[in-house]
């Protein structure tokens, strides 16, 4: 009993200051946070970010995993909490708790040809994975990075692609191009014909808006990549973060603790998975 008395409050937060705000697009900003205490996370895990007095929302950090007082979170302005967050300037007080969930199965991605498919703001968690890959480059024989978003203005991490282009096979596409865009125009699955890997052994990671993920996994399966080598990061309404509130459940899974990263074969056909 004595030992049990020491259980921690699972809702405990760590206060965080906004150290820097980077405008990625008109609706997406990256907040670099300075935490009061160290916090460790693995790539693909998520945290709950509190905007004091307003609300809380789950985000996967876009910075490199590990134990640190620093963390980047890339946020699209889509609702109440994110709207208020976007008004925050350098020095503003926020709070984080976590990390929660499983993260990307790095050990299953290593030593394989890897396809990474990102859509819109979905490149944010993938940026953390890309950091992971770059820090352990020799373990990833070939990385194909496909990125799609609405228009050239909507591309985030604009400063990163030169470097990524040198490290990976990079293809980008936009739904609607304008003059000066000499890359692909169309949806991200249009880029699949450029993939040149052994589909019998490769792995794929897909993160983006639900409809983009739905068609991407379909396309990848049609190329012969089996669902147990395709990993998706699901976006559901994670409220508590650790399996006590049931908001994020799809089928029998708690996205917060069984996910957010799933082998596609596990969630294929589960009602509501892409809604």
């Amino acid at each position: 009993m004595k030992k049990q008395d020491k259980i921690a409050n699972p809702y405990k937060i760590i206060k965080a200051k906004v150290a820097q705000v980077s405008d990625e697009t008109p609706s997406i900003k990256t907040f670099s946070l300075e935490l009061e205490e160290e916090l460790g996370f693995s790539t693909g895990q998520f945290i709950q970010l509190t905007v004091p007095g307003i609300g809380e929302a789950p985000f996967t950090p876009s910075s490199k995993s590990g134990v640190s007082k620093k963390m980047d979170v890339t946020v699209m302005n889509v609702g109440v909490a994110t709207g208020e967050l976007h008004k925050k300037k350098k020095g503003a007080l926020l709070a984080v708790r976590g990390p929660y969930g499983n993260g990307f199965p790095v050990e299953k991605l290593r030593d394989r040809e890897l396809i990474i498919v990102g859509g819109g703001c979905g490149i944010a968690p993938l940026r953390s994975l890309i950091h992971e890959i770059l820090s352990d480059r020799t373990r990833y024989p070939k990385v194909t990075l496909l990125y799609g978003c609405r228009s050239p203005q909507d591309i985030i991490y604009k400063e990163s692609y030169d470097n990524w282009q040198q490290q990976f096979e990079l293809h980008r596409t936009v739904d609607k191009a304008h003059s000066g865009w000499d890359e692909n125009e169309g949806v991200v699955t249009d880029l699949f014909e450029r993939i040149d890997v052994d589909t019998k052994t490769c792995a794929a990671v897909v993160v983006g808006p639900p409809v983009m993920m739905k068609f991407s996994v379909k396309g990848l399966e049609e190329m012969g990549i089996s669902g147990d080598r395709i990993y998706v990061s699901l976006e559901k309404n994670m409220t508590c973060g650790f399996g006590k509130c049931r908001h994020c459940m799809v089928g029998p899974y708690y996205v917060c603790k069984d996910g957010p990263v799933f082998e596609y074969s596990r969630v294929k056909g589960v009602p509501g998975v892409w809604d």
Binding site: V80, T82, L93
Partner: peptide
């Protein structure tokens, strides 16, 4: 979890919710 922070004290209130409410599983997007 409802956010009821005052000034620099972060406070959260846990409140019953219902899976029958339309917004129960909705995400911000």
């Amino acid at each position: 979890l409802n956010e009821v922070s005052r000034k620099k004290t972060i406070r959260k209130v846990l409140q019953w919710d219902s899976c029958q409410f339309p917004g129960y599983a909705r995400v911000a997007g």
